[in-house]
Design a protein around this nucleic acid. Structure first.
Lengths: 189, 189
DNA sequence: GTTATTTGCCTAATGTGATTAGGTAAGTAT
DNA sequence: ATACTTACCTAATCACATTAGGCAAATAAC
């Protein structure tokens, strides 16, 4: 019988697509095998186990997200950079909900170290260079940005803002405007 | 053989404890049966299915959270109310991580309608009465509070702030201070 | 207080997903 | 053409979810 041409790369990529289609928690070794029309056991030559698959999808998502963010930040500073960066997260989550959920997976220390997590942190600090914050305020601000972005995106994705006015897009802009003002207006009046 | 005295109530309560001990996604009908030393099938007289169990735990958590929040808000207004309310969420999540995760479960419309979700929304609006916001700003602010609380708590719970200075408690206070200032300073200078 | 009825928990069976051991044939090297 | 490697397979085991149908314990009827 003809070979399917499985590789870890292709499996992870297909897993990411599957996640976007049916949800990250529905990503299963069996479903992936079905998609490639091979038997489940065949995947274990390319993946250590189910957890390995999920981790790899998370790493892929974090890379993609970091790449997009780096693109968005190029040539921007201050408020523009803040908004562009924030939009990258929100847009990515809406285009790729499964991958985004994967990116929120709690990684074990080794995986976390090998992930694009560091790039995300670096970029967040780069944005804050456009504001006059010194330590420890800068770290507080990094955490604030992370909280607002992940919090808002999580709620919007979970449907928390559906069926209610005003439009979530308006709220998003309002929040980013207030965030920018908070960081710019330093030290507080 | 003696009966175990199972009821839906007791099962859900034990399920919530189990969630806090091993994580909400490890809450399984089988694990629950083990805890009561009965056979798995026995639980199906009291629970529709696994999803039903999870939903009931989520509803319990939302109720507990709303009760705590209502207590905290009694006799407080403005900045005090904001901080007390925020602390309820954060403390609950740290004391009961499994229940908190359950509370973040996406509920189907019927369950959502029967949940304490409405009370949470009402209380958030009540806090904002201490600030001079009119629509649509008030709704934007409701969403901002939700985003920051859930975002921060989620990151802290996921270990995002471990191993790094400054102390998360400091950041939390810093964020709430900035949040209060943003809402108080209206319309923005 | 015995009989009848409800009902709580059980056994048994089926289906799905995860995982491992060991086989066979397709591709590659000699 | 032969030997070797390796990609995918069969088969088996284990855990969780779920349903059908049985028996005994609690409760109600008389």
């Amino acid at each position: 019988m003809a070979r399917a041409g499985l590789t870890t790369e292709r499996l992870v990529r297909a897993g990411a697509e599957l996640a976007d289609e049916v949800g990250f928690d529905q990503v299963t070794v069996s479903a992936l095998a079905r998609r490639f029309d091979v038997k489940v056991a065949s995947l274990y030559s390319h993946l250590k186990n189910s957890q390995d698959l999920r981790t790899r999808i998370a790493l892929l998502a974090l890379e993609e997200l970091a790449d997009r963010a780096a693109d968005a930040l190029a040539g921007r500073a201050g408020r523009d950079a803040l908004i562009a960066f924030a939009d990258v997260y929100r847009d990515y989550a809406r285009e790729h909900p499964g991958r985004y959920a994967a990116a929120r997976l709690r990684l074990d220390p080794e995986a976390a170290a090998a992930s694009a997590g560091g790039r995300h942190a670096q970029m967040t600090r780069a944005i804050l260079r456009g504001y006059d914050l010194t330590e420890p305020d800068q770290t507080h601000a990094v955490r604030l940005l992370g909280s607002v972005f992940h919090g808002y995106v999580g709620l919007e994705l979970a449907g928390g803002f559906s069926h209610s006015a005003p439009d979530p897009q308006e709220t998003w802009e309002w929040i980013l405007d207030r965030l920018d003002a908070t960081l710019r207006d330093w030290p507080p009046a």
